[in-house]
Structures are given as C-alpha cells and as structure tokens.
Nucleic acid binder design. Structure first.
Lengths: 337, 337
DNA sequence: GGATTAAATACAAACGTTTGTATCTTTGCG
DNA sequence: CGCAAAGATACAAACGTTTGTATTTAATCC
C-alpha cells in the first residue's frame, strides 16, 4: 500500500502535480472550484504531504531543534513542554537533543540538528561549555538561534533568561530580614552566567544591608544533594546560620546537614533554595524556594524564534518569585508584613 | 555561504556525485585510495549530508518518533532519555510528541510523525485512549511500532511493560505481612491495562492471604494528590488501615488525609505507592513505593525497535522492586526477616 | 599481446515537492 | 465578433541524494 502523492491525485483528476500542489497550499492561482475538488480527493485518498520532499525543495525543514543538558530534569522538561506547544501550534516539528552536560555531546547535537535542516535551534548550553565558538560557527545564515536559561551574552540572538540577580537578591534579603546574621551561599557552577548572576544578587543584598561578604562561606561548583550536604556541613562549621542555595537539591542536602548537627530549622538555621522543585512543599520542613517559570520560558523562547524580524539580541527576562515556606520563616508572618 | 553538496565535492575532484555518495557511505565499489581523498575533501569543505534529500531518495527517514502523554513527568522523561541514548547511538534522530492525555492530540501526533517519514514510533497511549484502531491504521507497512508502559495487547508489535501485577501483588503482600487488616487501593484509571493489572495483583494478594475483597475500598479513576486525599479520607472512614496506591502522588494525598485524621503512619495506617518518585525519600514519613525503571524501559523499547527481524508481538516485562520505607514498616526489620 | 574478467567510476533516472514560465481558456470590452 | 487581458492550468526544472546499469580502466591469463 503505497502512500498517495500529489501526482496520484493529479492523475486521478486529470490535472498536473503543480496545480494540486498549489491547491493544497491554498494558492490564489487555482480556481476555488477545482481547489475544493482537489481537497476532497486528497482527503478521500488519504494524502499526507511528504515532508522530506517538501523540505528538500524549499531548502528548509519546518522543524526546530531544542538542546538541553538533560531532558529528565523538571526544569528543562517543562521548558521543552512549553516550547513544544507553541511550535506545534505553528506547524513546526520539534527535535530534542540532550548534551548530558558534555561539550562533546553539545557539538554532536548541533551537527545533528543542522543535518536535519532545522529552521531554528533553542539551546541551553551544558555546564562543560565555557565558550560559545562552536555555537556561533554552527549557526550560519538561515538558522535562527534562541538561547534560554544558560546563555552567552556575546552571541547576537534572542535570549530568554531568568532574572537570577533579582531572585537571589530577593531571597538573600528575605533571610536578612528574618534576622539571620551569617548568611552563606551554595552558589553553583561558575561556568554558567545564571549562577554567576545569582551570586552577584546574593552579594549585593549583603552589601546593601551593610553585611560583610565572606568568601569562605561561598561554595561553588556543585548543585546536587550530596555536595549540598558536605558543603552545608562546612558552612555550619564556619558559623553560618543561613544559606541561600542556587539549587533546591543542594539546599535539601544542607537541610540534612543541619538536622544531623541537631540544629532546628528555621529557628537556628534558615535556608532558601532555587527552582521550586516539587519536593520543596513535601519535605519537612517545607523548603522556601525561588520559583521559576520553565513552561513560560519555553513558550517565550519559541515565540522569539517565530517572531519574524525581531531585533537582534533581544533579551526577555523572567522574574523569579520567592515562595516563602517553613525553612526560612523564623519570624511570624505578622511581624514581617 | 551555500552548504556544500556531494556535487560540489565531485566537481572539485573531477568525480561524479555517485562516486562521492558511495565513498561517503563506505561502499566497497569505490577504491580505498579515492575514498580517503573524498573523505578528506568532504571534511575540508565542511560537508554535511542533507538528510532531507537522503531520506527522500531512500524513502525513510532515520528518525524515530516517541509519543508520550506528558514529557514533563519524571517517568516519561526518563523513558525518553533512555530511548534517546540508544537511538542516537544507532544514528537515529528522535522526534517527541506529547498527547496531554488527549486522544485528539494523539491522533495529531501520529499523523505528524508519519508525515515526517519516521522509521518507527514508540508510544505510550493517553488516558483518553480506550481503543487502538487509530494506532493500528496509522502504522502501516514500513513503520515499526513499539508500545511501552501503557499498551494494547491486541496490536501485533513489540511491547515493553512493567510487571504491574507482580509489583502490586508484592506491595499488597508486604502490607499483609505487616499485619494490616483492612487494605484498600487507590487503583488509578481503568482505561489503562497497567492500572488494571495492578488492581488484579492487589486482589490476588488478598485472595491468597484469605482476605476478603471489598469493592467499597477500591477507588478508581484518579492518580493525583488531590483525589488521593479525598479518596483516602473516604477509605479511612470506611475503616481501612492500609492502602496500596497505584501512584505516588495519590499516596501522598492519602498520607495527608491520615495525618489530618490524627492517625500515625505507619503504626495506625500503612501505605505503599507506585513509581518511586523522587519525593518519596524526602517526605515525612518516607513513602514505601514500587520502583520502576523508566530509563531501562526506554532503552529496551528503542532496542526492540532496532532489532531487525524480531518476532512479532514480543513482550518484555520489567520487574518492579518494592522499596520499603517508613510509611509501611510497622514491624521492626528484624521481625520481618 | 589480445581476449576475458574484475575493479572502478560515470551516467542517468528517480524520490515527491515546489515554483518560474509557458500555454491554453475564459472573460470583458470596444 | 475579434482582440487584449486576466485567469486557470500545464510544463519542466530543480532540490541533493541514492542506486541500477553502462562504460571505462586495470588486472589476469593463456
């Protein structure tokens, strides 16, 4: 059972493929009446346009690639989900590649997508990626690039990012207002602008409150639970009574460390995480966290791609919202109002 | 800056496109020496095979589609992740579609994938999907189908499923051994074979223990936290002292219900969930749960697709492993050994 | 050394669409 | 009625590969 082609339809109706093609594309060059007949026949014969042929002829695929470090992270899968709805709506197919945080895989992914003639690439680079050359040189001419979350500001394309600075500032200020005196941070990977910005927000909040910045309680290069635990331990030993963590998993580790030290949270130790993972509401104590909007980020990234002649280097920034929960709520709610 | 084609390379070397094509495909019909020269030139000119053209000519794309209800569910994103590694390794591109649990979207996804000439489709059908006709008729001749997790056994293709029956049986038996006397179940959606099987496993465990099966404490058609809470409430009112839940989120809701009723877990109320979501270890009390192997399932589904002439209707079953945690561990560990 | 065979490469058609140009119809107008 | 101008459709080339067949070149043997 061969798939039906426009040539089949044309033969059936004593027309030419070109007319059929134009009819199905809704061109004004074919008479209303014949168009209806053609559409009817196409439906009847179960015609489905062969995208390979169409794309080949037109020189582009209506496919868009998305490159993320890991698809099975809550944040990224939600970004993808958001982008996918918008892109499907607009008639695009979505190709998804993971880099597993490896530069090598990122290069492979770019090349795969280019071979597939994608019309655009939405990318959040891997932790291993410290410079943007391979991205710049991969994306030539007719492929539109959009970066999200983890971005290189030097590339001339649209970007959608979290307002990491503002978020970290807000979280840290909150801890200060709660009366914590020695506030450290689990700062994450410094290869990523996102984490650098969070660190800056943290620092500025301390400065604005007239508090000292102590490098010995700024912990870098990790975002998982295990290292959150070990770095949390060290932080406690160095006298921290609060931490702003650039990730929720590391915050979780730090909470465990505090419990093990016999400290009560939030009375003796306060903490705010980032990302508002689903477990933050479930754990005990519940974890205060900065809420991101991954789905929204995905939608916006997709829209930035779709927008026809957007100005180069447009940057969309998404505010982060602090969800205050038990882990940092030392004063009663009334007092803080 | 036009992309280089095999014709460009051919001209440059005074050869024909066919020779270049064969050389790059590693055909034995071209001399070793010229192949090296061609490969060299191809690299030098930055050649990348145009997949649109290649696929068109060969009649298939080396792309595989994956259809899941939701990409941002821990379980499915891990399945995808597993499948993707295997498929990428084998030179396939992966197209991902979500159905949002809607039949309409599922049909759309199938049609999208077929238009893209995918070589195969890995699918886990939506909750709304109660029969398999649209899948059967979509997948004609040369498209290989593999179902995973939620499957229709009537379709003649490879399947990868969890051993739901065994898992539920194991979980329920565990609750029985712990001395719970009136064990209900949050059974999930009956449109899915997976949940039906879990229900059967639950029933059989009760039967084998000589316990009565009471339909009034078998709750159906829900897997989220909110309904877990409300159904949990009813279960408690009907005298349940334990529940096997076919999902972790509904189990979470039931735990909340028990807490609200002032019952201590696991002393007065025991519960086991399913899926081993990441929050099960984090919540308090920690939640016993049946562990699935989504990544493994993805890999196996991909391998089933790749396997050349596998027997039709091959079914791979993955054992579920009970992770015993606080929520069901009423007897001391020593006693249960 | 010429005939026979094998190895290497060239030729050309095909995949199904799209699209610029050419041809044929119809319509409107003087 | 005849002619120009639209209007509608046909023709044909092209997109970049792949692949069966034909042709050239090199190797082998008596």
């Amino acid at each position: 059972m061969q798939k039906t082609t426009i040539t089949d339809i044309a033969k059936e109706l004593n027309l030419t493929p070109s007319t059929v093609s134009r009819a199905l594309a809704g061109s004004s060059r074919v008479k209303e009446k014949t168009r209806v007949v053609i559409e009817e026949k196409a439906r009847e014969m179960g015609y489905e346009r062969n995208l390979m042929a169409s794309n080949l002829r037109r020189g582009v695929a209506n496919a868009v690639g998305i490159i993320v470090p890991r698809i099975n992270r809550q944040f990224f899968s939600n970004v993808i989900s958001g982008a996918e709805s918008v892109l499907n709506e607009a008639g695009y197919t979505v190709l998804i590649c993971q880099t597993h945080e490896k530069l090598e895989d990122e290069k492979k992914a770019l090349s795969t997508l280019l071979r597939n003639q994608v019309a655009g690439i939405l990318i959040s680079h891997s932790i291993e990626t410290s410079e943007e050359n391979h991205i710049a040189q991969a994306v030539t001419g007719d492929v539109r690039l959009v970066q999200f979350d983890r971005v290189f500001y030097d590339l001339p394309d649209a970007k959608v990012v979290n307002d990491n600075y503002q978020g970290a500032y807000q979280a840290t200020s909150h801890l200060i207002r709660q009366g914590y005196k020695r506030i450290g941070t689990l700062a994450g990977y410094m290869t990523s602008e996102a984490y650098k910005e969070r660190l800056e927000g943290y620092k500025q909040a301390l400065r604005d409150a007239g508090m000292e910045i102590d490098d010995s309680i700024i912990f870098k290069d990790t975002i998982v639970k295990e290292t959150g635990y070990s770095q949390g331990m060290i932080a406690l030993e160095r006298g921290c009574d609060a931490l702003y963590s650039a990730g929720d998993f590391s915050a979780l580790g730090a909470v465990e460390a505090a419990k093990e030290k016999g400290l009560s949270v939030p009375e003796e130790f306060g903490i705010v995480g980032t990302a508002n993972e689903n477990f933050t509401e479930i754990m005990s104590p519940t974890l205060s966290s900065l809420e991101l909007s991954p789905n929204r980020m995905g939608r916006l990234a997709a829209e930035a791609f779709l927008r026809p002649c957007t100005e180069e280097n447009e940057i969309v920034t998404l505010k982060m919202e602090l969800k205050t929960r038990e882990s940092s709520q030392r004063l009663s709610k009334i007092n803080t109002k």
